[in-house]
Each structure stands twice: as structure tokens, then as C-alpha cells.
Amino acid sequence: MSITYLDAIREAQAHALRDDPRVFIYGQDVGAFGGAFKATKNLQKEFPGRVFDSPISEDAMIGLAVGAAIEGLRPIVEMQFADFSSVAFNQIVNQAATLFWRTQVPCPITVRLPFGGTSGGGPFHSQTPETIYAHYPGLIVLTPATVEDAYSMLLEAVAIDDPVIFCEHKFLYRHLKAEKLPTEALPIGKARIAREGRDLTVVAYSAMVQDAKEAATELAAEGWEIEVVDLRSVKPLDTDTIIASVARTGKLLAVGEAWPWGGVTAEVISRVTSEGFGLLDAPPQRLNAKDTPVPYHPNLWAAHRPTVRSIAAAARKILRH
């Protein structure tokens, strides 16, 4: 039997609903329909009175979740697409993220964001807003890159006493498969070495981890050994694992699907240069999407974002330094 990334997300929610009576799910079309991506398929039937369709009101969806969290419940909110979380931005960053600091009352909500580009998604169904949420104090931002992490990190997200922005990549939903669900996992805040190497560290997260691994395979044919670090969690960011990797390789490429101004890759470069400057044998580089909205046509879309080819090309440039 094989389990997809999407199955893992559904199973994690079923597990959370089964194990914890405080958990409920709220979102557009998540009930009988099972969600736009079927991430909540049959959950309403299996857990009556625990899975609720919401009106198209992202702001009020998060507001309701915060109120329920104050009452001690653990809501999981599905945004139909991460792009629409901009409508809920105020409730996420000003209500949920500030509650504990202001009042000492925890706000354990999980906001699931189906995010990232797929061909044909266009400007409003492709965005990767992890950077914006990571910027605000009080939020945890998770970006699982594997089926196993999608499962274990979503379970952990629900258990965490803070608001979690859970970024699940739409391309990985049906593309990634595993044989079975994991029984143990790295803790939140710990990055993972997704592939070992000694010539260059490529730091990536979410779907870019798969692309970076493929690029590493391509470069292996040319004799280069590339180490790929999967951040897993964007905030907190595991600087120690990144620096330890750069200590081994002396070279760094940070890859992200998000836009280039600021963001996770800039943060990675900034930390390595300030804390590990002496470890670097070449100027560290970043590879991001282009600074335009995400385009619709596959030709434009493929050129807009980092790909296996552009990651390999950027890597070669550093390796030849």
C-alpha cells in the first residue's frame, strides 16, 4: 500500500480527531464534500459534529478559531488556498499571534495552507506566503517536504500551544508517496539532512527539497557531492544544522519557491554570513522565484520558479568558484 502526502494530511487529522476531543476542523467545503483537495475526505462522516463547513469568510474563520482556542479547544482551519489567507491576515498576525504574549492565554490553532505553485495555478492559486507569517512574532511556520513529515508535523502542529501556519505543498499532494506512516519523527525546529555531501550545502524547504535532491543526483553524475538540508520548519529556523553542514562543505546555496525580496533564503544567508563567515569558501548564493506574480502559462510558470535545472546551474556556478 502506498500513502500520498495528501493521505498523510488526512490521516493526521483523523488521528488528531480520534485522540483529542478538543480538536475540530473548520473550513470551506471541508464537510460532506471533503475539501477542495479532499484532505478532509469522509472526516465529517467518521467524526460527526467535529467537522464544519464555513462561509467564505477567511477573517471570521480565524477569529472563530481564536475564540474556540481561548475556550481550550484545538481548531484546525483549512484555508482553501494559501493565497486566500491574505483575507485572514489581520486575525492571524494581530489576534492569534499576539494573544499569548498579551494575556498569557495560549492560542493553539493550526492553520492549514495548501500552498505553492502547480502548473496552471496562476497568480492567485500558487502563492508561498511563509515568509510573511514567519516575520510576525508568536507564529510557528512549518513546511513539510516529505509524506512522513506531512503526517508527523501536522500532528505536532495540533499539539503545540501556539498558532501554527502549516504550509502543505499542493504539488506534493499526489506526487509524493511513502510505504507507511512514520512512528517517530524529528522534533519541530530541527532540520534534516535529506542527502549527504561534502562539496556544497543546498538549503531548501517544502517542494524545493525534492528539486534540490534531483539536482544533486544530476550533479553526482558530474562528480559533485551535494548536501541537501531540509529545513522542515521555517520558524523556528534550525541555524545549527545549517552551519554544521556549511562547516563540512564551505559553500552554500539557499533555494526557495517564494519571491526574492527578503524571506527564508535571505534569512539563511544572513545567519550563515554573520555566524559562520569563516566557514565559507565562496560567496553564499540564493535562488528564488522571479519578482513578479506567479504566471499562468506552463512556459512562463516553469521559468518563474527555481527548477531542477536552475538549481543545478546555480550550484555549478558556486562549485566552480
Binding site: S57, D59, A60, M61, I62, G63, L64, A65, V66, G67, A68, A69, I70, E71, P75, N90, Q91, N94, Q95
Partner: peptide, 8 residues
């Protein structure tokens, strides 16, 4: 912004 929190 507080109204939906009361709802919750």
C-alpha cells in the same frame, strides 16, 4: 475583529 472571536 473581536466579533468573530466572540463567535468562536
Amino acid at each position: 475583529a473581536m466579533v468573530s472571536v466572540v463567535n468562536g
